[in-house]
Deep mutational scan, measured.
Amino acid sequence: MKVIFLKDVKGMGKKGEIKNVADGYANNFLFKQGLAIEATPANLKALE
């Protein structure tokens, strides 16, 4: 799943980066902790 990092995550990515991560990792950790959001077309447009 493609995500946009909202904060730096050690060993994974930096704020503003777009990366592919495992679905479970994104849903169970990154999204719940507020560290990333899904890289949807609307979210990608908002990032620009």
Rank of each mutant, 00 (worst) to 15 (best):
M1W: 07
M1E: 02
M1R: 09
M1A: 03
K2L: 15
K2C: 15
K2E: 08
V3T: 01
V3F: 01
V3G: 00
I4R: 02
I4K: 04
I4Q: 03
I4Y: 09
I4N: 00
I4V: 11
F5Y: 06
F5T: 00
F5L: 09
F5N: 00
L6W: 01
L6H: 00
L6R: 02
L6T: 08
K7Y: 14
K7T: 12
K7A: 13
D8Q: 04
D8N: 13
D8W: 07
D8G: 05
V9H: 03
V9I: 09
V9W: 06
K10M: 13
K10F: 14
G11A: 05
G11H: 08
G11S: 06
G11M: 06
M12Y: 14
M12W: 14
M12K: 08
G13P: 00
G13T: 01
G13L: 01
G13Q: 00
K14C: 13
K14T: 09
K15T: 08
K15S: 07
G16N: 09
G16D: 06
G16L: 05
G16F: 10
E17G: 04
I18P: 01
I18T: 06
K19Q: 07
K19T: 07
K19M: 12
K19Y: 08
N20H: 14
N20F: 15
N20D: 13
N20C: 15
N20Y: 15
V21M: 06
V21A: 02
A22P: 14
A22H: 14
A22T: 13
D23I: 15
G24K: 12
G24E: 14
G24P: 11
G24L: 12
Y25S: 08
Y25H: 05
Y25E: 09
Y25P: 08
Y25D: 08
A26L: 08
A26K: 05
N27M: 15
N28M: 13
N28D: 09
N28L: 13
N28E: 10
F29I: 11
F29G: 03
F29V: 13
F29K: 06
F29S: 05
L30Y: 02
L30H: 00
L30E: 00
F31Y: 06
F31H: 02
F31R: 04
K32D: 06
K32L: 10
K32W: 09
K32C: 10
Q33V: 09
Q33W: 15
Q33C: 15
G34V: 03
G34R: 09
G34M: 09
G34S: 07
G34A: 07
L35Q: 05
L35E: 03
L35M: 07
L35W: 13
A36L: 03
A36M: 02
A36I: 06
A36Q: 00
I37E: 04
I37G: 01
I37N: 02
I37T: 06
I37L: 11
I37W: 05
E38L: 07
E38C: 08
E38W: 07
E38N: 04
E38M: 07
A39G: 05
A39S: 04
A39V: 06
T40Q: 02
P41Y: 11
P41Q: 11
P41A: 12
P41T: 09
A42D: 13
A42Q: 13
A42K: 09
N43A: 11
N43K: 04
N43E: 05
L44M: 12
L44W: 03
L44R: 06
L44C: 09
L44K: 05
L44V: 11
L44T: 06
K45I: 13
K45V: 11
K45W: 07
K45H: 09
A46V: 11
L47A: 08
L47C: 10
L47V: 07
L47W: 14
E48R: 12
E48W: 09
